[in-house]
Amino acid sequence: MKIKINGKKAETNQSTLFSAAAEFGCKTQNTVTIINGFQTSKDVDIKENDEIVFIEKGKIPDKDEFEAMLSARHTPRVYEAAKNSRVAVAGLGGLGSNIALMLARTGIGTLHLIDFDVVEPSNLNRQQYMISHLGLYKTDALKEQIMQINPYVNVICDCEKVEEKNCTELFKDDEIVCEAFDNPEAKALLVNNLLENRSDVFIVASSGMAGYEKSNSITTKKITDRFYVCGDGTNEAKQGRGLMSPRVTICAAHQANAVLRIILKEFDV
């Protein structure tokens, strides 16, 4: 029967995981074993089309095996769909930096990152940057981190401010766009511009995630077939109610999961 071992197609007559490991010269001691996205330490039965990855701890794999190992915990169908998709993240602050890293870890094939600003100290309370990134453009700082997490993601950076005049051109190759701006006018501009001018675009926007109000007040709402909004809808950032990492990250995770569900053609919320 046909199986895949460490990303490579293989033919075997073995009926269990460990016997297949032995046949293909893979160790099972001091090894992380993953079958169809699920980690196991048991010698389970295997069947046609199983995807198996043996990761020897502490060993640097060769380049061919590396991508298979990075994606081993993904459910096979999910990984293929993610790999073949492209997502734009507009705004790389508390929402966008988190969304982009989550999507990179999920194995999205192409990430289009848009932001005009540089990393400064007040960003570090909630945004995925470090001291070493201070002064760098957010696009560059985030790309550097994505390359450390998953070097097989194709990252396209546009260090630009999104305005009415460049909106159509900037997003012309994107069919899934995350609105992750801070400014409410910028949010409305992007959402209205894309939805008025493009019938083929999905937009996952955000509104309301400041403070330390209840986690469960943050939801994903489906407004039209192609427009989703995450957040609590009301809690704006203002004096006395700052933006804090936990709720901003919850909202970012709502957006990232909404994107993943769109990619997998699960359109309900």
């Binding site: 705004g91 992750a180 801070d182 926007a205 995630m209 407004i223 809808g233």
Partner: peptide, 10 residues
Amino acid sequence: VEVVNFVGGG
């Protein structure tokens, strides 16, 4: 009708 009101923060 659904009016989506964008508030600041991100």
